[in-house]
């Protein structure tokens, strides 16, 4: 009888720990207070075959864009609170404004606005996988084309 009681107590304890782990996991997904937003600015062109070694980790994402050269212009990272707004300077007098909106199913919803001076160029809302990125490209710059990698990681 004592053994049975002991076993049942252990089973109960084990179940409680399991529930705590699961609930903790759920809570872990809700906890993020801010988003680390990183903007990588790349100049793509066709005047040379240079591939900047700093962009090695993005090679698979850049190659399909069919440019001959890729050069990293700047990397900028900022922590942005939910519903907060942060602006990033982009070469050519442009500004990229990012507003993290929500975190759901391990995806971060980002509201992104690209402006040139006072003129809006692009407004978009994108849901990216936590620690993932997307590419925004096309703006001409110094005889090439700007390619922006916008990534976000919940903190």
């Amino acid at each position: 009888m004592k053994r049975l009681k002991k076993s049942l107590s252990l089973v109960l304890l084990f179940s409680l720990v399991s529930i705590a782990v699961v609930v903790g996991g759920e809570a872990a997904e809700k906890v993020p207070q801010a988003v680390q937003v990183t903007i990588r600015t790349i100049l793509a062109g066709n005047k040379s075959d240079e591939f900047d070694p700093k962009l090695k980790d993005m090679e698979a994402q850049l190659k399909p864009l069919k440019y001959r050269s890729y050069r990293s212009l700047k990397d900028d990272g900022q922590s942005v609170p939910w519903q907060g707004t942060k602006s990033f300077d982009i070469p050519g007098g442009r500004t990229l404004t990012v507003v993290p909106q929500e975190f759901q199913n391990n995806r971060i919803a980002l509201k992104v606005r690209l402006t040139q001076g006072d003129k809006p160029v692009l407004d978009t809302t994108v849901r990216i996988t936590n620690k993932g990125n997307f590419i925004l490209g096309g703006p001409p710059h110094e005889g090439g084309t700007l390619v922006l990698s916008i990534s976000a990681a919940a903190q």
Binding site: Q61, P64, V121, L122, D123, T124, I128, N133, I135, G137
Partner: peptide
């Protein structure tokens, strides 16, 4: 990445998905 909305303010815009690297452009 899933694009919920997009407004290029009169400019042409393309939404591309590259399967190999799973990149949204």
């Amino acid at each position: 990445a899933a694009v919920d909305s997009i407004d290029a303010h009169g400019r042409s815009v393309a939404l591309l998905r590259e399967n190999e690297s799973k990149t949204t452009v």
